[in-house]
Design a protein around this nucleic acid. Structure first.
Lengths: 228, 228
DNA sequence: CAATAATTTATAACATGTTATAATGCAAAC
DNA sequence: GTTTGCATTATAACATGTTATAAATTATTG
C-alpha cells in the first residue's frame, strides 16, 4: 500500500529507466512515446502527466548522465588550465562508451517536439564551465577581470554545437575532441594572463596542426555520413 | 505551351515564393506543407517531388537570403579585421527588418523533420567566413600559418548557435550581436598577429564590459521569454 | 467502513511530415 | 496526329508528439 506520492515517484523512475533502456538498445529510432509507455508498463498518458513532454524525459536522462560525468571528473588530477581539456576528453570517452545511447539522448532532446532548446544544454552545463573559469582565474591563468559568465557561455555553446554535430553523424568522436580542444584554447587564450598564454599559445599551434592534418585527407565540411 | 523543364522551374519558384509569403505573414506557426501546397496552388505531393523535404524548401529560402546578405555586405567599407564585426551587425540588421520571417526560416530548417543539420548552416556560410579569414590573414591581421578552415569553422558555429538562441526566443537581437562580437574577438585574437592583437585586445575588454553590464540587470541564462 | 478526490487508463482524436498508389494531363517522340 | 512516358494530382495511409475525455482504480479522509 504505497502512498500516492511514492507510487508517483516509482512510476517516474520506471519511465526514466525504460527510456534509458530503450535508447541503449534501440537508439533513437524506435524510441517513441508509445514504445516508452509500453516498456514502462504504463499508459501513454502517464508520461505526459508526470513529465509533460518527451523532451522533459530526455532532460531527466541527460541529468543522470551529467551527475555521472561530474563524479568521474572529480577523480581526475589536472591543474586549473588543463582541466578544461581533460573535461572535454572525458566527455568524449563517455560518449565512446555508449555512443548510440548518447546520440539518441541528444537527438531526442533536441529533435521532435523540443522547443525548449536552452534546457538541453542549459544551466547545469553552463554553471559547470563557469566554475572552471573562476577556478582558472583564481589560479592566475586568466585575467582577473574576466567575466566568467561571458567566457563560460562561449565555451559551453561551442562544446554544445560540436556535440550536436557528432550526434547528427557529421563528425566522429576524435574530431569532436580535437575541434573543441582547439576552440577552447582559442577562447581561453583571449582571456589569458601571460602565464596562461605561455601555455595556450603553443597548444593552439599544435591543435591547429592536428586539424589541418585531419582535413588534408578529408574535407572539413564533408560529413562522415556522406563519405561512407 | 511551356516546356516540361520550364513548367517544373515555374512550380519550383511558385513553391519557394509561397513559402516566403507564408512565413512573412504567418511566421513559423501555420506554415505546414499542406498550407504551403495550398498557397502555391499545387498538390501536396509536388513539393516533395521537387524538393524532397520541407527542410530542402527552407534551405532554398535561406539561400536567397544569403545572396541578399552578401550583396549588401559588399557595399560596406571596412578593413579586413573590422569586416568580421560589420558582417555580424549587418546580419542582425537584416533579422531586425523581418524578425518573424527569419525566425520561421531558421526554426523550420532546424526543427520538424530536419535531420540534415549541417546543410542549414553549412557550406555557403562556412566558405563565407573562410574567405574573410584568408583576407584578414593576407592583410597581416592574422598569423600567416593560421588554418582558415579551423578558424572559420569555429566562427561560423559560434554565430550559428547564437542565431539559434535568438530564433528560439532566448535572447534579443542586441544581445545576439554583442555576444557574437565578443566571441569573434576572442577567437580572432587567438590567431592574431601583434598588429591584429593590438586592435582586438581592447575590443575584447570593451565587449566583455558590455555583456557584464547587460547581465548585471538580467541573468545571462534567464531567457527572454521567461522574463516577460 | 464508506465517501471523496486524485491519478491512471483506455481510447479517440488532431496536426504534422512523409510515403504510396492509382488516375489524369500533357509535353515529347515518332 | 497519334502514341508514349513523365509529372502532377487527388487521396489514403502511416508514424509521430500531443491533447482531450470518460471510465476505472485507489489512496486518503471522514
Amino acid at each position: 500500500m504505497p502512498t500516492r506520492e511514492e507510487a508517483k515517484a516509482q512510476r517516474r523512475e520506471d519511465i526514466v529507466n525504460a527510456a534509458m533502456r530503450l535508447m541503449y538498445t534501440r537508439g533513437d529510432s524506435g524510441f517513441s512515446m508509445r514504445a516508452l509507455a509500453d516498456a514502462a508498463g504504463v499508459s501513454i498518458a502517464t508520461p505526459y502527466n508526470l513529465f509533460g513532454s518527451k523532451q522533459a524525459i530526455m532532460l531527466a536522462v541527460l541529468d543522470t548522465g551529467m551527475a555521472l560525468y561530474e563524479q568521474r571528473l572529480g577523480k581526475l588530477q589536472a591543474d586549473e588550465l588543463e582541466i578544461f581539456f581533460e573535461a572535454v576528453s572525458l566527455a568524449t570517452e563517455l560518449y565512446a562508451e555508449a555512443p548510440k545511447f548518447h546520440q539518441a539522448v541528444l537527438f531526442s532532446a533536441y529533435g521532435d517536439g523540443g522547443r525548449d532548446y536552452r534546457a538541453v544544454f542549459g544551466d547545469p552545463r553552463f554553471l559547470f564551465w563557469k566554475a572552471l573559469v573562476e577556478r582558472a582565474r583564481n589560479a592566475g591563468f586568466l585575467e582577473i577581470d574576466v567575466d566568467p559568465s561571458a567566457l563560460a557561455l562561449a565555451l559551453s555553446q561551442q562544446f554544445f554545437i560540436c556535440i550536436l554535430e557528432w550526434a547528427y553523424g557529421e563528425i566522429g568522436l576524435a574530431e569532436l575532441e580535437q575541434r573543441v580542444h582547439y576552440t577552447f584554447a582559442l577562447l581561453l587564450h583571449g582571456a589569458a594572463t601571460s602565464s596562461g598564454s605561455r601555455r595556450l599559445k603553443p597548444r593552439i599551434k599544435l591543435l591547429q596542426k592536428n586539424l589541418t592534418d585531419r582535413w588534408s585527407v578529408s574535407d572539413p565540411r564533408k560529413s562522415v555520413a556522406a563519405s561512407q
